[in-house]
Design a protein around this nucleic acid. Structure first.
Lengths: 241, 241
DNA sequence: TAGTGGTCTAGACCACCGT
DNA sequence: CGGTGGTCTAGACCACTAA
């Protein structure tokens, strides 16, 4: 009585490619084998490999570059960074990358709520980071980040301060964990004392509260993040299509 | 010295299909001709038509249904309605469709800012609507909507009140204008007196301010909308992928 | 110029839907 | 059952990149 799950060939190839990506057979930024090579490897036609790669390209796991090859997507690229930070200045200028100031990085036991979101047991090791994102030297976003402690064992305050690029790029290159997608829930809230102090606004000021859960291959959640956004001169941009 | 714009066949077919949609050759909800018929009509192979339809399907202009045909997307469908209202109850239940209570519907001259967003001249005829969206009888969203008066000539308060479905469905069936995509800018603001009164909250309460510009075929903007969202028990959901 | 991805075709066959 | 979209193939050729 179970539903027969028909899976087309290109879908199976797609899944095998994802497994290879997950296993680190090709690293972020590197090229994967050519379509013809992959077709030979899997014993299918080039067209079928092509359709599999099309799917992964649409999912932003791979990036095609005509005449050069197909590459593993990376958070080092500007495009990936924009995808994961939707805040833009009101004056529509180039979305300059913010600089981050780390306020705290501690290892402790995961509270129940965090543990549940990360699919681990309450009390398991976790890392928490607090940081401030500054645009043109002005603090705009306060963030509190939670990661599973086991997979990010060497993540310390020194490591964070020694690095200047986007956080996801560091997690990707240093810890082999690539954030694939995230879902966010937005609310308007009044600034509490801590948020107000960090962002330099009055207590009670309206802030945009952004709760995010990010996941890696196989939709496994590996980060929980709460951000307080000051939206006086910035806005959260979203495209409905 | 101009860049040569190479346009593949499937892209040209895509554009011709869009023109047919725009001209109303097939109405929302109706089936378009089969791939084989279209291939014959345009003198290309079925595979090329297929790729064109794939693109339009990804853009949510068409909907494929295996074994039945390919249909013109419509705002009557539940899927379209969800795409254009990202507010969900916190308790993750089924996103019930809100009921809307119309507060006002007036015809007047477009203010400068509205005119610019709608690509018309300041002073041109416009329609403005104010309404309240209620979830389970509770007012959650206050909206102020602006439309070009010329294309929505028969839009009146009576017409709105006589209709119960989603607004875009009415605009689509009664006025032949289909909203294709929209871009939104979100901010956190303090409730002014008018918003507070309409939503039944205290003045100064944090609200999620959502500014939207929607467009129809050819990215022509045809609606400007400002919404004040009460996010005590609801949140704006967004998927980063 | 060699190698990559991108396009286009023709044809065979499969999965699904309604009658 | 006939008609629709969905898959897969093999092969030819085009567009782009780098050396």
């Amino acid at each position: 009585m179970s539903t027969v799950t028909f899976s087309p060939l290109y879908r199976q190839i797609r899944d095998r490619l994802v497994h290879s990506l997950q296993a680190g057979e090709w690293r972020p930024g590197e090229a994967i084998p050519s379509e013809i090579d992959l077709a030979a490897r899997y014993g299918v036609s080039q067209g079928t490999v092509r359709k599999a790669i099309d799917a992964l390209s649409a999912e932003n796991l791979l990036v095609r570059r005509q005449g050069r090859g197909t590459f593993v997507a990376s958070h080092q690229e500007a495009r990936a960074q924009i995808r994961f930070l939707r805040l833009r200045p009101d004056d529509g200028g180039e979305p300059r990358q913010p600089s981050s100031r780390f306020l705290e990085c501690r290892r402790l036991r995961a509270p129940l709520e965090i543990a549940r979101a990360l699919e681990m047991k309450a009390g398991d090791a976790a890392v928490t980071i607090r940081r401030l994102l500054e645009f043109d030297g002005e603090p705009i976003v306060l963030e509190e980040i939670w990661l599973p402690g086991s997979t990010f064992r060497g993540l310390t305050a020194e490591r964070l301060n020694a690095y200047s690029g986007p956080l996801y790029a560091l997690l990707e290159t240093e810890f082999g964990t690539r954030m694939i997608r995230a879902s966010e829930r937005l609310r308007a809230v009044a600034a509490g004392e801590a948020e107000a102090r960090a962002l330099g606004v009055a207590t009670g000021e309206p802030l945009l509260l952004v709760d995010r859960v990010s996941s890696t291959y196989g939709d496994k959640p590996v980060e929980v993040r709460r951000g307080w956004y000051r939206t006086h001169h910035h806005h959260y941009f979203n495209e409905l299509s």
